[in-house]
Amino acid sequence: MALIEDVESLKRSPLPEVRETIAKRICDYYNHAVFEGEEEKIACDIIRLFAKDVELRVRKALAESLKRNPDIPHDVAIRLANDELDVAIPILEFSKVLTEGDLLEIIVSTENVGKLIAITKRDDVTNNMSSALVLKRSEEVCSSLFKNKTAQISEETLLIAAEEFAKSGDVVNSLINRGNLPIGVVEKMISFTTDELKSKIEKQLKYKSADSKDIAVETYERATLGLLSDEPIIDSSQKVRSEQNMTSSTVKSEQLARHLYSNKKLTSSIILRAICEGNLDFFEASLSVCSRIPLINVRALVRSAEKNAICSLFQRADFPISVADSICVILEFIKKEKYKGKAFDQNTKQRLIEYIETNKYDSTVPLMPYILALISSDITLSNITS
């Protein structure tokens, strides 16, 4: 009955304000599933007519009213999403009727920054969508995307943005505040950014907070490295090596490194965390696996602690060369402490921090604030999880 009354009202007074009021009312009924059967079909047809209305205010009211309804006709959602900005924004930001394919098509076809920003705020941004958004090369769009903590963003996409927008304060701040940046992304940012932003990056990395996402990643990496103290990991694709000159720790480290590598989980982040923990065996085994250089040769290069040798090795292993100076400092400390390849205890970690700060490496060695943050967060995490 209500639908028939609204249709009659439209016939009597087709003014824009009347159409807007009736559009809102029909949408409200539709959202609450008031219509059934034939009435529902008629309601959909009326909604389609409102989506073509010449008055912006009518279409805007329609989009705002239907933005959270997952059951509106797909063609209506597409029309509203491709409408003028004021109409499109609610649908682009909230409507679940739009598929990933729909959104990718809109991203590629539009240069309207407002529409792109609306898409960055969705709670279902996929890796493909974030990649397409970054490739629009808009500072405003990228800054908005990185502020969305629910957005899926691959390391490859982050690297593109870090290089493209390294001199943009808004984008850099959004990246830093996002947290849990891969070391390769940090390297890009510091390599290309201004001195002022570089100082800010290092400062914020040094004093970064351990939010829940950071703690989850750190816990996973530490748990993975903790496997080295348990039984060996047997990768069915690899035979267990048992040469006499390989210690139990070395064998376990190589097995774990190969296992992670074969499952594409041997990341720069976990390799870096290993050396920050003093886990030299795993660090060497990982570089050996990634570089395809025999472990005995890698060990000689690493334990020389010579920068040129370390840089050459990192390059072969596709490991960030920018951390070479920082790693050499840790390797010199390991030689000084005469550590044998297993992880540091907490007292040794504290001495490492004091060694770095006493020698002012934290202010003179590139990326050392980032390394210190890893070491310090590991100590903090031990307290949190113990």
Rank of each mutant, 00 (worst) to 15 (best):
Q255N: 14
V251T: 14
T250D: 10
K252M: 07
K265L: 08
V251E: 12
S242M: 15
I270M: 01
T247Y: 02
S253G: 14
T247C: 00
A274S: 13
V251L: 14
N279D: 07
M246S: 12
K264H: 11
T250W: 00
L272P: 00
Q244M: 01
S249V: 08
L260Y: 08
S269E: 15
K252E: 05
N263L: 06
Q244E: 12
A257Q: 07
A274K: 07
N263H: 14
D281W: 05
E254A: 10
S268P: 00
N245I: 12
V251W: 07
T250G: 02
Y261L: 02
Q255S: 14
S269M: 11
T247W: 00
C276H: 07
N263Q: 02
D281A: 11
Q244W: 03
Y261W: 11
N263W: 05
N245Y: 09
L280I: 14
I270H: 07
E277C: 06
S269D: 15
D281G: 02
T250K: 05
I271C: 10
L256F: 11
T247L: 03
L266A: 04
C276T: 15
T267Y: 06
S269F: 01
I271A: 02
T267V: 00
D281C: 09
S242E: 15
T267N: 07
T247K: 00
K252D: 06
I271V: 15
R273T: 02
A274Q: 12
S242I: 15
S249L: 12
S268R: 06
I275N: 07
A274C: 07
S248A: 07
N263I: 00
K252F: 10
E277V: 10
V251Q: 15
L266T: 06
K264I: 08
E243G: 15
S253Y: 12
E243K: 08
S249I: 06
G278V: 06
I270L: 05
M246L: 12
N245G: 10
L280A: 02
K252T: 01
T267Q: 06
S253T: 04
E277M: 12
V251P: 13
T247N: 05
S248L: 14
R258T: 04
N245L: 09
S262H: 11
H259P: 00
K264W: 04
S249H: 05
A257H: 02
S269V: 08
L266W: 09
K264R: 05
A257D: 03
L260I: 00
L266I: 09
S249C: 01
N263P: 01
A257G: 04
R273S: 10
E243W: 11
K264G: 00
S269R: 14
N245S: 10
S242N: 14
L272I: 04
S262V: 03
E243S: 15
H259S: 08
Q244K: 08
N263V: 04
N245F: 07
S268Y: 09
I271W: 10
Q255V: 11
L260A: 03
N263D: 06
K264N: 08
K264E: 01
V251K: 14
S242G: 13
K265N: 09
K265D: 11
L256Y: 03
Q244D: 13
I270K: 05
S268H: 11
V251Y: 12
S262M: 05
H259F: 15
I275C: 13
G278Y: 09
M246V: 04
